Amino acid sequence: MKAKVSLITLGVADLDRSLRFYRDGLGLPTENHDPEAGVVFFRLEGNMLLAIWPREELAADAGISPEGSGFCGISLAHNVPSKEAVDAVFAEAIAAGAQPLKQPGDAFWGGYTAYFADPDGHLWEVAWNPDIDLT
């Protein structure tokens, strides 16, 4: 297996709400969007896609129960080139309707981070890492 992730799919409660959050609020470009398809893809840099799909349908596709709540043990990270960029992206997400979880600030490991949750509670970290350039 190649050490690569090419698609991340988030199970969402309301597809239209999540589309508005990611496309209109955060400015992610959709990829071949078909309003009748029941799934939305967003083009990310580095030949990668983010998808949103109704939670029940994603669970059924995986053959598991859609029930579950609380921390699911994963976060998505968006790395930026500066502390100021962390502040700006965090503010943009909050303005788009994200729930602030951890205000921007210095991290114990030397970087600068913030956390927010999307409308379905998926955790996003916005980070500046002075040691590894992931921008």
Rank of each mutant, 00 (worst) to 15 (best):
44 L>G: 07
81 P>Q: 03
33 H>P: 00
73 G>W: 13
98 A>N: 02
90 F>R: 00
103 Q>W: 06
29 P>K: 08
76 L>M: 14
57 E>V: 15
30 T>V: 15
89 V>G: 01
119 P>G: 08
97 G>M: 09
118 D>L: 06
84 E>C: 15
107 A>Q: 04
87 D>S: 09
86 V>A: 10
36 E>N: 12
95 A>Y: 08
105 G>T: 06
48 M>T: 13
94 I>G: 11
89 V>E: 05
28 L>K: 02
83 K>Q: 09
72 C>Q: 09
32 N>Q: 12
46 G>F: 11
48 M>D: 00
96 A>S: 03
108 F>E: 02
117 A>F: 13
81 P>C: 03
120 D>N: 12
36 E>T: 13
31 E>T: 13
28 L>Y: 07
107 A>P: 01
78 H>S: 02
24 D>T: 09
98 A>H: 02
45 E>G: 15
84 E>G: 15
93 A>W: 05
74 I>V: 14
32 N>C: 12
115 Y>D: 02
62 A>Y: 15
88 A>N: 01
69 S>T: 11
109 W>A: 04
60 A>E: 11
70 G>H: 03
86 V>C: 10
48 M>Q: 10
111 G>R: 02
81 P>N: 04
111 G>N: 04
89 V>Y: 11
121 G>W: 04
93 A>N: 04
94 I>Q: 12
30 T>E: 12
77 A>D: 04
29 P>E: 10
28 L>W: 08
39 V>Y: 15
110 G>K: 14
76 L>S: 04
92 E>S: 14
50 L>Y: 06
86 V>W: 08
106 D>K: 03
26 L>E: 01
88 A>E: 04
93 A>T: 03
